[in-house]
Design a binder for these strands. Structure first.
Lengths: 202, 202
DNA sequence: CAATTATACGGAGGCACCCTCCGTTTTCAA
DNA sequence: TTGAAAACGGAGGGTGCCTCCGTATAATTG
């Protein structure tokens, strides 16, 4: 019954670590296939772990998502820096958005997860949002400094547009189509003063 | 046991009609509050009918959505004609899209329902899609004929953009924000040849 | 190498929802 | 009035969610 705060923590148990890993792998597969509403009991089953163990490691569905998708988001964020270092500003922005679309295509459910996260204002949203916003900010600033896009657009806007547009596609020509929409949007970003005042008024 | 095809059908039962009506009213309330995943048993409870009755009238969740939201979609479609008759082309397109955003704001769940419908490729999607596509087509053609927007954009693209952008907003300044994004998108539609060839190449 | 103790495990249990099936009730019409 | 067609309601079987706690096991201590 020694509760000494100095040497309090002991080494984490091996089975705990192992099970956490199993759960993450299982969750990745299950969510990939079944979307973000897939059964958590199915995840536990696939991981060959009791349902209680799942809930101990990840108290909420969102916690599981956070762990599973954190890496994917980080990779996308890193891509921004790579592109900023190797491509001209406007093109870098455009290419990054395309990559964002493609990530969605491959990893079905990630953006759906994001949307779900938004509804619940959960942790993963804050994280992804920050990562991706930073990525976009980098590209946007650069393009703006080069005079290639308007200065009055926030990274958050672009992220919302990317997510929103990506989330909708459904037909077979899905990806091509979304990329077209993203391009149109990016075109809209270009001109500093795209509309003469009277176009709005009449 | 007379199965005479001539006078086959008899008058629909009064209780059936009444219950259908009750269910639609209840569903509108429940879905409005709880989103498209709300409990169908709750709908039956609020309508004060058995769950079996609900399923007989609306075999699937989507069938219920279809009935509930058909009217809303029809109204939005009618607005397109009104605007086409009273506003200059580009402005009409823009204003209609704004109305689409606002409808989302008011009737939370309609677009979510649409998205859900897309996933299941259900009936309401075909209907809404047709209605709204027709509405957009009207406005787009008109603006295109007047030389105010590109000619290579399909109404489906614009609908997808509207739905996608609208679906994402979350902060307090939600509506304003989405409208800004829609405007940027519309700006992107304007110029016939928005990008010089070398802008893409580097 | 025990013995001890902090940790983690598993799954039963209680609740809600989904949807089907069918005995009972109501309505229509002859 | 009466019988059949049509509709009703809800029990029942399945699944998922999440909590709780008795049992098992890994790390530490002697």
């Amino acid at each position: 019954m020694v509760t000494d705060p100095n040497k309090a923590t002991r080494k984490p148990r091996a089975d705990s670590l192992r099970n956490r890993e199993r759960l993450l792998a299982a969750a990745a597969e299950i969510f990939r296939a079944g979307g973000p509403e897939a059964s958590l009991e199915a995840v536990a089953r696939r991981a060959e772990v009791g349902i209680g163990t799942l809930y101990r490691h990840f108290p909420t569905r969102e916690a599981l998502f956070e762990a599973v998708y954190r890496r994917e988001v980080e990779q996308l964020a890193e891509l921004a820096e790579a592109l900023a270092g190797s491509e001209p500003p406007f093109r870098a922005l455009r290419l990054w958005l395309h990559a964002g679309v493609r990530l969605t295509a491959t990893k079905r459910g990630m953006l759906t997860a994001l949307k779900l996260a938004i509804d619940k204002s959960s942790e993963i949203y804050a994280f992804s949002s920050a990562q991706l916003t930073r990525a976009i900010d980098l590209l946007l600033r650069r393009a703006s400094a080069a005079g290639e896009v308007r200065g009055d657009v926030e990274p958050e806007d672009v992220l919302q547009a990317l997510v929103g547009l990506s989330l909708m596609g459904r037909q077979e020509d899905w990806e091509t189509n979304v990329i077209r929409l993203v391009d149109i949007f990016v075109d809209g970003l270009r001109a500093p003063v795209p509309l003469p005042p009277d176009a709005l008024a009449g």
